[in-house]
Amino acid sequence: MSTPHKTDVVIIGAGPVGLFAVFQCGMLGFRCHVVDSLGEVGGQCVALYPEKPIYDIPGYPTIDAADLIVKLEQQAAPFAPVFHLGEEATGLKRLPDGGWRLTTSAGTVIEAGAVIIAAGAGAFGPNRPPIPGIEVYEGRSVHYMVKRREDFRGKRVVIAGGGDSAVDWALSLSDIAKVMVVHRRPKFRAAFENVCRLEQLHAEGVLELVVPYQLQGLEGADGQLTAVNVATLEGTVRRLEADALLAFFGLSTDLGPIAQWHLELERNHLVVDPASMATSQPGIFAIGDVNAYPGKLKLILTGFAEAALAAHAIHPILRPDTALHFEYSTTRGVPGGAPGGVPA
């Protein structure tokens, strides 16, 4: 076994909620190590939709997902977190002193007094449509996420799906590309305002709604699409000339080794006490989309609040002889800054 890193808190997951947990822990004087299976921080915000605007972050009427991660990195930076990226958390063992020893797929060993699991939905990947030969086109003209909106400028784009991702990207790309939205029924499972706007753009001829149709097959060569074939349940077939297919059928998720850590689960989520985010194992907390409790809302801002609750619940574990006097950040400031948050 390699020489263990010793820290106060180990955070599993470097998405937005995990990054904010670094800040919350840092404000209470805790050092953090952060483990993530992805090769960069940001979680799904960076891996799946870096250019997608987010509208419900307080103080930002709109902010791209990638920009939000940059801001959260800057916010956490004064507390010098240590990142272990491209490493999956594989093992977790209780230590005699009540702390925990975490091991990773790279052989890294981290010993900490508390663990915060901010793993989102766990390891994730796209649900691929069952189309023969689709693998040939993946990464070139068939995509399951959009990293750069400009990549689709001037192209004929077929978007398949009926949820928020499909509707959001149809709206976003409609002014730079020819967009055709394929869905198996006329009703979409997306925000009401966005569906209304989608239907309005269809009525104005800005984009086309191809409903009720389903994907049937692809045409092209050397990984480049030339057409997408779609069909109704009755067998009526249409050929849509296309340069790219964006397929949004959700994600398949897997908690991976976390599911074997003897934590109470409910529908593949970690059950927590909503007052503290504590799991069924002492010293282990879960925040963000990975947890479950009555009234849970899967929002980034909910995860931010959960990070604060978890950090404060950890304090009596790590500092049992020190009373925690709650202070607002406006009066306490952050490292390198004067009280009130104004740089010294």
Rank of each mutant, 00 (worst) to 15 (best):
K6N: 12
V9G: 01
V9N: 01
I11T: 03
G13Y: 00
V17I: 14
G26W: 11
G26L: 10
G26N: 13
M27E: 10
M27I: 09
L28K: 11
G29M: 08
H33T: 08
V35T: 02
V41Q: 06
V41T: 15
G42M: 05
Q44L: 15
C45L: 15
L48I: 14
K52I: 07
K52H: 11
I57D: 04
P61V: 12
T62W: 01
D64W: 00
L68T: 02
I69W: 02
E73R: 14
Q74N: 10
A77K: 15
G86F: 05
A89R: 06
L95T: 11
G98K: 10
T104L: 03
S105M: 08
V109P: 00
G113C: 09
A114Q: 08
A118K: 03
A119R: 05
A119T: 08
G122L: 06
F124V: 12
I131D: 02
P132D: 13
I134R: 09
Y137E: 02
V142A: 03
V142D: 00
V146Y: 06
R149L: 13
E150M: 08
R156F: 00
V158G: 07
A170E: 01
L171C: 11
L173P: 06
L173S: 04
I176N: 06
R184C: 02
R184P: 00
P186E: 07
V195G: 05
V195W: 08
R197K: 14
G205S: 12
V206C: 05
T232K: 08
L233C: 00
F248I: 02
D254C: 14
I258G: 04
A259V: 07
W261C: 01
N268M: 10
V271P: 01
A278C: 04
F285S: 00
F285C: 01
G288H: 06
D289W: 11
V290H: 04
V290Y: 05
L297Y: 02
L297C: 05
G303D: 07
G303T: 08
F304P: 01
A305W: 07
L309K: 15
L309H: 09
I314Y: 06
A323H: 12
A323R: 13
T330M: 12
T331L: 12
R332M: 11
P335R: 08
G336H: 07
G337S: 14
A338M: 14
P343C: 08
